[in-house]
Design a protein around this nucleic acid. Structure first.
Lengths: 225, 225
DNA sequence: ATTATTTTGTGATTTGCATCACATTGTCTA
DNA sequence: TAGACAATGTGATGCAAATCACAAAATAAT
């Protein structure tokens, strides 16, 4: 019943593709910007006519939920952001905020559209990426709602380790409040859980520096309560 | 903070488009089938090389969650189904089951691909539809996890009434177990909630026949606890 | 029709986690 | 280098909803 990266049928390619053929037309028409940790890259509710390509760094996708801000996911370069909003009514439907130093390209939708029209491979990759996102969303949502807190938080840690940083040691990229909004709990529960995992020798923690000591256990916790 | 259809920037078009220009090439290459309520149209884990177009009827998209089957959403014709799986490794990543009598077209991916390549408008519409789905997913997930049970169930009833049946009276398309799996609760809670809403005059209920008597209240419940 | 089997209704009990309420530490800034 | 403000740690309490445990309907099967 468990869902993880191994089950995922896709690997990201669309992002890397642009460096291939159609890069030239693009490079003349994009704007590269740097953002600092905490800066807003895309703001929900704002008008925008750009697609954003995250070149380097980490960002969080978040949106206003009924009661509090919801962090949908943490994304890592390279990836496209803001497609849904720019193709729609051009009002951003979610926010994206830099979580580390970040480099992004702002690409005008018209230009992006043109490339999409003229490059079948590219548009195919974009479709793939969107399909992948949809599936990911389904599974993420099913997990979040069915699993207990411990499992969800274990998942978050595993994702940081395996997908985001690809290392057993990393600095927590989010505050406890943000972690709570990512995993759908209270800040206090995150605090308690971190202490607990640390005490149980599952992770080592000094400040925001984390080391995954017992990935086996984490995976077990992910599967059970 | 509330998210509902009014906030949704998109309206479904891609599905209807095929009847336009590129319908001919398609009609020679598709297979129309009928399914009865309860029949599996797409089965998670099965190999498939078809895109499915739901022509008429209702279907549920569902997948194996960590602990029980999760109903992602109820969909209504016309819509495409199974894109993510057919574009990926051709293993269905979710199931789709008929919830009413249903007519579907099975379209070979190759053919679908060709149309996509040769028809920019169509491929654009597909991209739009996928973007729309992604946003919908985000919001749905944020709501499900943040709202209390009453709010979520109120939403489900409102969605049936406003989006699926477009009428204040309808027959519940799902069993209580299914409703529970859609709204992330236990079957018992659904039963209690239905009784409660009935007792409070918010809905009228005889068997599975439902009438929304007080939509105002339902919307209030949706917003608060 | 009559039995079997799946759905539904409703109480009693348990529990995971939010919430409240502070103490403590860490981080900016003037 | 204070002083201020934000981020964290941790206990005590409360509550929404799951779970357990059946009875009663409703459907399906024979």
């Amino acid at each position: 019943m468990e869902t993880n990266c191994k089950n995922c049928p896709f690997n990201s390619k669309a992002a890397a593709m642009l460096s291939d053929g159609s890069f030239e037309q693009l490079s003349a028409n994009h704007l590269v910007l740097k953002f600092k940790k905490g800066d807003a890259i895309i703001k929900q509710g704002m008008y925008s006519t750009n697609v954003v390509f995250l070149r380097t760094g980490l960002a969080k996708i978040h949106l206003a939920g009924p009661y509090h801000e919801q962090i949908v996911k943490l994304v890592k370069a390279p990836t496209y952001l803001g497609l849904p909003t720019t193709f729609g009514d051009k009002i951003n439907q979610y926010s994206v905020t830099a979580v580390s130093e970040v480099e992004v390209c702002f690409i005008d939708v018209e230009v992006f559209q043109t490339i999409l029209n003229e490059n079948r491979e590219f548009s195919h990759e974009i479709i793939l990426e969107l399909c992948r996102n949809e599936l990911e969303s389904f599974h993420r949502c099913a997990n979040r709602t069915q699993k207990l807190l411990r499992g969800n938080f274990a998942d978050a840690l595993l994702e940081f380790s395996d997908r985001i940083f690809m290392s057993d040691t990393f600095v927590l990229p989010l505050s406890q409040v943000e972690l709570a909004n990512l995993v759908d709990t209270s800040r206090e529960s995150i605090s308690r859980l971190l202490s607990e995992f640390d005490k149980d020798g599952i992770i080592g923690m000094k400040g925001k520096q984390i080391e995954i000591l017992d990935k086996k256990s984490l995976k077990l916790i992910s599967q059970n309560g």
